[in-house]
Write a protein that binds this DNA or RNA. Structure first.
Length: 568
RNA sequence: GCCCCUGUAGUUUAGUGGAUAUAAUACGGGCCUGCGGAGCCUGUGACUCGGGUUCGAAUCCCGACAGGGGCACCA
């Protein structure tokens, strides 16, 4: 409908005023008025000479009187230059509900771009913490949102299974924990050894040499080291797969650092031959500012350690190429924390200098950190909040809540699982990417207000009504629509736009906010408008409306990776 | 010092140039035995400051101020 309104305005603006730009219709911002509004008269008046306000008045009135719509529009009027198009509520409501129930509402048209989204990127030999959780929720949701918006998407993960942190871990393990097997909680145990290594090195810097040696042996595929590495790495991988399955996250491709550094080193050699990379203090570097003619922006970029071992950036150069060459993608998105912004600018600029054409199609989707009240999480300080601990705490709280209600007799554990997972994911997604999340344990176990549980609850309530009676779409007839019905319907019609916005701007937070708005509108409707007790005609119409609402809630939640329980 | 991000009710937050700034939470006051009170209604309360662009600025530009992150062999 919005499209139709926009199209009609665009057409008349063209024929009457030769106005070629795009036209946007927005909802009339006043409570109780249902329809669309456009500010086009302001824009046309702005291009004309003479008195602005006279022109504005004349244009808006001429345009308004020339607009022609079908029976879904009740009237058109102008107010201070705004042109308001009021909807015929009953007819429009019927069409909206039918569209929602009979089509894949909000599903974008198939787009030609194939996009790779790389996210999660856990480090083996370390624990999965709430920082990874934000990344993983964000990436997983983005994949779903982009797919729903019509893109073809490859979900990729990069396992950081080699490098300095692994060498540090292996050193500590083989000198102090030789042949030790992990306990049941592998994740935490792995992390402990890493922390122990860091502490030992801080106290005795002379051990650094041993770690360095370990890294070299690892890269040279020393059989003894490789054997331990493979075994211990597997423990990490087991944990990751368990966690991904709990989160309901799936990847199409797994990349491993350990399979990238050799190719990375070759690329570095080419860069040396092209005189892009040069030697400095034994290491190979790229003086980006010098090459690009900038001043202190891109800094120097180290691409190979002085002992010949690879860095993260060495591998990233190879990975960028492998993505485009191996998967036929048009765009490559890296979901990585904002603290690595400079790193990716350096990687992409280097690729550009090296003549890699798709360098401009690489995009670092940065998001802000998850912090604690006291500041950053750090292994050294031992203040990391692990995913496993967070989950069990929230789960216990959800289970206590569930047990208070006799509506859920069976599947208490399953319901608690859905609710706790929903709470965690929603809290990770509802904020804008570039805002810091300060993790608060009290807030994490809260199921009131702007939370996943609130949205799920609305869905459960709506589902329960539908269990109790059936409706006939063809006989749907609204009498006078109540404010709450109109408001709910208006919110429902915004779904396609929210999908598109989330996808184009890479912001699942838009979908989270949207889904909350739907739940809010539904709860208001629920209290004001009886469904099952209403007169037959109204009951039928309201049942259809409730049904449409559950559809949207479920689809929206799904795009966030959140399940929609029917009872809770 | 340089680069990036963020400044909106006490706190958390929506808002990619349009009318009366969106919610949550906290605090105060209410909700009839009507589909489930993880809910609803109601009151109090906000655009960091100074310039500029524009018919119109929370939104764009410039400059302050405040917080966070990054800047050579970590990822």
């Amino acid at each position: 409908m919005k499209d139709l309104v926009e199209k009609e305005i665009r057409q008349k603006a063209q024929t009457l005023y030769n106005y070629m730009d795009d036209v946007e219709a927005k909802p009339i911002p006043f409570k109780g008025d249902w329809g669309f509004s456009t500010t086009i008269a302001f824009k046309i008046a702005g291009t004309q000479k003479g008195n602005f306000h006279n022109a504005l008045k004349e244009i808006s009135e001429t345009l308004a009187s020339n607009l022609e719509f079908g029976k879904e529009v009740s009237r058109v009027e102008t107010v201070n230059g705004y042109i308001n198009i009021y909807l015929n509520a009953n007819t429009y409501a019927q069409n909206v509900i039918k569209t929602i129930l009979n089509t894949q509402y909000g599903k974008g048209v198939t787009k030609k771009d194939k996009i790779m989204v790389e996210y999660s990127q856990p480090n083996t030999h370390k624990a999965f913490h709430i920082g990874h959780l934000r990344n993983t929720c964000l990436g997983a949701s983005l994949v779903d949102v982009l797919r729903y918006a019509g893109y073809s998407v490859v979900a990729a993960n990069l396992i950081n299974d080699t490098g300095a942190h692994v060498a540090k871990w292996l050193w500590c393990y083989s000198t102090y924990h030789k042949a030790e097997a992990p306990p049941e909680k592998k994740s935490e145990w792995l992390e402990h050894i890493y922390v122990e290594a860091t502490q030992k090195l801080a106290k005795n810097p002379e051990y650094e040499l041993q770690v360095k040696k370990m890294l070299q042996r690892l890269e040279q595929k020393d059989p003894e080291v490789t054997k331990i590495w493979e075994q211990t790495k597997q423990w990490s991988m087991d944990e990751f797969h368990r966690i991904y399955s709990e989160l309901g996250v799936q990847f199409d491709v797994y990349f491993y650092d350990s399979t990238l550094y050799e190719e990375g080193k070759e690329i570095v050699q080419e860069l040396v031959e092209k005189e892009i990379a040069e030697e400095s203090e034994g290491a190979l570097i790229i003086d980006l500012d010098h090459l690009l003619g900038t001043d202190d922006v891109y800094k120097t970029f180290v691409v190979l350690r002085s002992d010949g071992t690879a860095l993260y950036q060495t591998k990233d150069l190879a990975l960028a190429k492998r993505k485009f060459e191996g998967y036929g993608i048009d765009r490559s998105i890296y979901v990585v924390g904002s603290e690595q912004k400079l790193h990716f600018q350096q990687v992409f600029k280097t690729l550009e200098l090296a003549g890699f054409k798709q360098a401009k199609k690489c995009y670092h989707l940065s998001y802000e950190l998850v912090m604690l009240k006291g500041g950053k999480m750090s292994s050294r300080l031992g203040n990391i909040v692990f995913y496993d601990d967070l989950y069990s705490e929230v789960y216990e709280e959800a289970l206590r809540e569930v047990e208070k209600r006799d509506i859920v007799q069976e599947n208490k554990e399953e319901t608690a699982r859905m609710v706790s997972m929903g709470a965690i994911k929603f809290s990770m997604l509802r904020k804008d990417n570039n805002k810091v999340i300060v993790f608060d344990p009290k807030e994490a176990v809260n199921f009131e207000g702007q939370t996943g549980a609130y949205v799920q609850y609305a869905h459960a309530r709506a589902s329960r009504i539908l269990e109790k009676d059936a409706y006939d779409l063809n006989a749907m007839e609204f009498e006078e629509l109540t404010v709450q019905e109109r408001n709910l319907l208006e919110v429902l019609t915004k779904f396609p736009d929210s999908v598109e916005q989330s996808a184009e701007r890479y912001k699942p937070s838009i979908m989270a906010t949207y889904v909350f708005d739907v739940a809010k509108a539904f709860n208001e409707f629920y209290h004001a408008c009886p469904v099952l007790q209403a007169e037959p005609a109204t009951k039928n119409a309201r049942l259809a409306l409730v049904s449409a609402t559950t559809r949207i809630l479920k689809s929206g939640l799904q795009l966030l990776g959140i399940e929609a329980p029917e009872r809770m």
